[in-house]
Design a protein around this nucleic acid. Sequence first.
DNA 1: AATATAGTGTGTGAAAATTACACCATTAAA
DNA 2: TTTAATGGTGTAATTTTCACACACTATATT
Lengths: 232, 232
Amino acid sequence: MEEVKLPKFDSVFSIDCVIFGFEAGELKILLIERNEEPFKDWLALPGYIVEQDESIDDAAERILYELTGLRDLHMQQFHTFGEVNRHPQGRVITVAYYALIRINGQKELRPITQFARKAFWHPVNELPKLAFDHSEIFNTGFNKIRRRLNYQPIAFELLPEKFTLTQLQSLYEAILSKKLDKRNFRKKMLSFGFLKELDEKQKGVSYRAAKLYKFDRRKYAKIFHNDMNLDK
Amino acid sequence: MEEVKLPKFDSVFSIDCVIFGFEAGELKILLIERNEEPFKDWLALPGYIVEQDESIDDAAERILYELTGLRDLHMQQFHTFGEVNRHPQGRVITVAYYALIRINGQKELRPITQFARKAFWHPVNELPKLAFDHSEIFNTGFNKIRRRLNYQPIAFELLPEKFTLTQLQSLYEAILSKKLDKRNFRKKMLSFGFLKELDEKQKGVSYRAAKLYKFDRRKYAKIFHNDMNLDK
DNA sequence: AATATAGTGTGTGAAAATTACACCATTAAA
DNA sequence: TTTAATGGTGTAATTTTCACACACTATATT
């Protein structure tokens, strides 16, 4: 069997990341300020070029780390953008990933490479124009997680380990952009059976402290073992 | 502003297509027999390399056409596969698309290029080993359409324009691999309000002929206008 | 000590959706 | 006319969804 060479093109893959966080009752995403042409000084999603000897999943982790200092999140690919002219300097196809993380105790965001001047959280409402087609990438990703919220326990990745039902509800409201009924929401969430009520209560509030809950992954997996694998 | 060059890699994008059809009560996909190394003579999903000056959506259409003679289907991207060693000859990242089409009156399948020796329909059960990681790509795609079946009217793309409720049901059963209750299925489908009952009946059967129905896109769009755009 | 404030936590009834389930009707062929 | 094959239909029980309002508790303020 003879070795056949693949054709070569001046084409480049990149990764872009839509990282959601939840803070002060607001849904936010992670942006960087670019320090490199093109779109120097613009705001953009954290994203960069995939190396030749790394898988795209690995690349996503590395790139996010280099641009923001964040590590070990569970990112998932959600769409690939391949218009010819989406990058002004050549053909770049980008695979977009999302993740949801706890902003809370997060250490400072600090870019490792010089390609980003800084990284910071920005509310998803009132987003400014972003570099490249990043606004479109963000919108597609946001719609994806809205959908996924219905059949995947992604909300818990955004909350601290211990949370109140009110926090959980206001997160759902932020993602879905609509008000939910408190009694029905609580009834339904609790009926799933994967929330573990703790003995602790909220602290430091100047009103009746709410009970804290925890998301119980093991119970979730038991209850929904069917659905978990379908998801890729 | 100075022109900055993008780095160059020996990396290649490709497209692979998972095309579903429905025939004789069975769900099938389109395979080709490869006529080129690597995996010469193997069965594979229709797939090839993206040119530098075409978008990935355009590439998907072109490639499918060249390998199978099929045209103008509505393909949708569903996942991108980017493991380093998925192609034995170098770095190839592939974007996978699916489509669902009517096999029925389809003209002969005939590859245009020589890269495929032939193209043919194969039942999704009892699939043989496929070239590259195409078995995994198929599985991922199959799971995607199973999910989508719940919130998108994709089934109708697989049926002839006029179809009976029994045909529709057996298609659902084929995709979901489970039996459904006839009365409940019919009640529910009709309750959506986007099936148009025709005056015609089935012909050429040796038993009571069934009524024919049509999928009414306009009604569907009116009823579900919300959901249509979220889908990318 | 009284009171204002802000969010917690709880139940019920009506309506809608889902599920389980079995038999007669119609057609063509034998 | 009988047989074989599929078409077509309704109801009752159960579960899920939805709409809706007020008393409780902890703290801060006076």
